[in-house]
Design a protein around this nucleic acid. Sequence first.
DNA 1: CAACTCATACCATAA
DNA 2: GTATGAGTTG
Length: 764
Amino acid sequence: MHNLLHNLNDEQLAAVTLPAQSALILAGAGSGKTRVLTTRIAWLIQTGQVSPSGILAVTFTNKAAKEMLTRLSAMLPINTRGMWIGTFHGLCNRLLRTHHRDAALPQTFQILDTQDQLSAIKRLLKAHNVDDEKFPPKDVMYFINGAKDSGLRAHDIEPYNADERKKVELYQLYDEQCQREGVVDFAELLLRTYELLSRNQPLREHYQQRFQHILVDEFQDTNDLQYKWLKLMAGQGGHNGGVLFAVGDDDQSIYAFRGANVGNMSAFEREFNVRNLIKLEQNYRSHGHILDAANVLIANNSKRLGKNLRTDAGHGEQVRVYEANSDLSEASWIIEETRNLIHDGASRSEIAVLYRSNAQSRVIEHALFSAGIPYHVYGGLRYFQRAEVKHAIAYLQLMDNPHNDSAFLRVVNFPARGIGVRSIETLQAAADQYGISLYAAVPYVTGKAGTALSGFVKLIEGTRFETQQMSLPELVRVVLEQSTLLAHYATEKEGADRIENLEQMVSAATQFLSEEGYGQGAPAHLGPQAQASAGAAVVNQDGLEIIDADAPLSTVMSPLSAFLSHASLEAGDNQATIGQEAVQMMTVHSAKGLEFNNVFITGLEEGLFPHESSSREHDGVEEERRLMYVAITRARQRLYLSFAQTRMLHGQTRYNMKSRFFDELPEDALKWLTPKVQPSWFGAKKSAWDEAPLVGSDRALAQQIANKSSGSGWRIGESVAHAKFGEGVIVNIEGSGNNARAQINFGSSGMKVLDLSIAKLDRL
DNA sequence: CAACTCATACCATAA
DNA sequence: GTATGAGTTG
C-alpha cells in the first residue's frame, strides 16, 4: 500500500488520500493529474473504502479512459472488472442499451456521428420545405446540439423571435425523425440517459448507491448537461452517498465553442460544498523560462481560480522568437531549426509543430516533405469516417435496423443501381404519407422505380438471411461482397486504398470481438442472451428488479450492434503511422494533454492567433489566451515562437500584425532571433521590408505591392497610425488620386476601409 | 439517371 | 487549396 503513495509530492498525496467527500483538484499543466486520479482509485480500493464496482470514472476521450485503465491494472493486483471507466458517451450507450425499454429506444438503436446528423438535418429541412439559405443545416445542427448540451428539449425553449421559433420547431421535428428511425446523436445519448434516470427513481437510486465514488477528468471541459448528469449520478450535492472527485484546470479550458462551461468548476465548489480544494502547482514538465512565459501570459486573464506553476528544473533556455517575411520563410526557418535539433541528437518525435488552424499546416508540410524530414499530421480523417468505410457501415446498419433512413439513403444507390433522385422522391412521398421509414415504404412504390427499390430491399433481406448464423467477421466479409462495394472500387483507378480499408474491416471486426469478450464464433445477429440469466439482475430495497448495466456487453447487445456502436463511438486512429520516428504536426487544440522536448508555436499573428473570430465572442480573447497557455506548456526544454508578415490563407495574401501575446510575455524569458525594435512591432516591420533580402515569391510580392501603391503615396504592407483606431497595416489600396481608398487592418479595432484623401494617417 | 463542370465557403473538436 | 452543392450535359 505504501509503495502506491511513494513518490507523490505533498499536494498529490493530499489529493489522493482525501476523505470520502467531494473534492476539486486544480491540476496545472504537467502536474501529474492522471497519476493523482488513478492513484486515488487504487488507494480507495486498496484501503478497503470501496470495492471496484463502487467506482465510476468518466473521461472525454477513449484514449484517456484507456490510459487510466492501463495504469490501474499496473497498480492493482486485482482485476479492474466491475469498475466503470469510460467516456460520457460510452457509459451512456451502455446504460441505454440495458434500459432501452425504459428509455423508449429499440435495442438496436444506432448512433449518428456528426456527419450523419448533418445529413439527417438536411433531409429534414428538405422534407419540410425549409429554406436552407435562411436556415443553414449547420446552424440548425448547432442550435439543436447547443440545446441538448444544456439539457433542453424543444418544449423547454422559449423562442425570442420568429427565426428561433422555427428552429425550435425543427428541433422538435428532428427528434421525432430520430425516434422514428431508431437513431440517436451524440448529445442525445447523454440527454436520454439523464432523462431516464431523472424520471425513474428506483433506477436512479440503484446507480447512486452503487457508485460511491465518481471521478471526473478534465472537469473544465464539461458542458451543462454533463454536469447535470454527474450531479444526478452522485445525487445532488452528494447527498445520496455519491462522492464527486473532479480534476481540472480552468486555465486549460479551450472548448467553450463546443459547449464547455468553466463555470461548472465554481458551481461544483458551491453546490457540493467543496471543502477540499487542492491545487497541484508543481510542474514536472517544463523548464523555468517556459513556465514563466506561461504564468505571466495567463495572468492577463481576469476570470481565474488562481494558480501559479513552479518547477525545480531551473531556468533552462530562453524562448526563441522568430519573425519571418512570409509563411514560406517561416516554414523554411522551421526546417532549418528542425535540422539543427536532429543534428544535436533530438528525436524527431520529440519535435512538435503547433498551429492555430489546420489550413496553416500545408506550407509546413510541404517544406518538411521537400526537406525529406518524416512528419506526421494529426487530425486527418479517422478510419471509421472514411467514405468507403461509412458505406460499408451503412449496409451493416441496415442489417441491424433497416429503418435508419440515413443509412438507407447513403447506400440505396451506392454503388449505382439505377435508383435516382426521382425514385427517391417518390419513395419519400410514400414514406411521409404513411409515416413510416423509407425501407418500409418500398412496397408502396410501383413501376420501374419500385422494381429497382425492391431489388435493393431483396439485397438487404437476402444478405441478412444468408448471414443468419455467421460470426461478425464473416458477416462483414459477405456484406462487402454482396453490396458490390469491393467490385465497385476495383473498377476505380484510385480504388486500391479504399479496397484495402474495406478489407481491414474484417480484421477490425475480429479484433473487436476479442477485445470486448465476445466469442469469436458467436452469431453476429444474435440478440443479447436472456438478461436474467446473465446474473445482472439486482433487486433493490423496494423489491423492484433492476437490471444493472454492469455485465459483459454480450448480454446487452448483439455483436453486430456492439460493433456499430464501437464504429460511432471510437472513430479509430487517423493514420497507422504511429510509432514512426516523425516530426509531430497538429493544432494547438489537439496538442492538449501531450508534451514534447521541443515545440514550435507558429503563426502568432493578430487575426490568426488570437483568431479574428474570437474578438466577436464573449470572453473570446481570454479563451485564445488559454489556448496559447496550453501551447506553451506543451514544451519541456525548448520552445520556439514564430510569426510571419505576410501569409497566404484561403487563397489570398494577408498582412497581419504580430500577436498581442508577445506583449504579454516576460521579456527576460524571450530571446529574439530576429531584431525586435522597440517599442512596438512597427519599427521591426519597416526594417524588415526595407532591408531584408527578398527571395522567390517574396520578391514577386514586393513587385506587386510596388505596382499597387502607384499614385496614392501609400504602400501595401505599410504601417500607419490613426487617431481613433490606433496602429494598423495597409492591406489593400483601391483607386487612385482623390478616390484612393485603403483597406487597413487595425488589429483589435478591426478592418477598416478609409478614404486616403480624408483620413488622417501617420506613417510609423 | 449519371457524370461532369463551376461556384462558394472556410477556427478549433471528441464522442 | 479543398470539399460540398448546384447546375449542365451526354
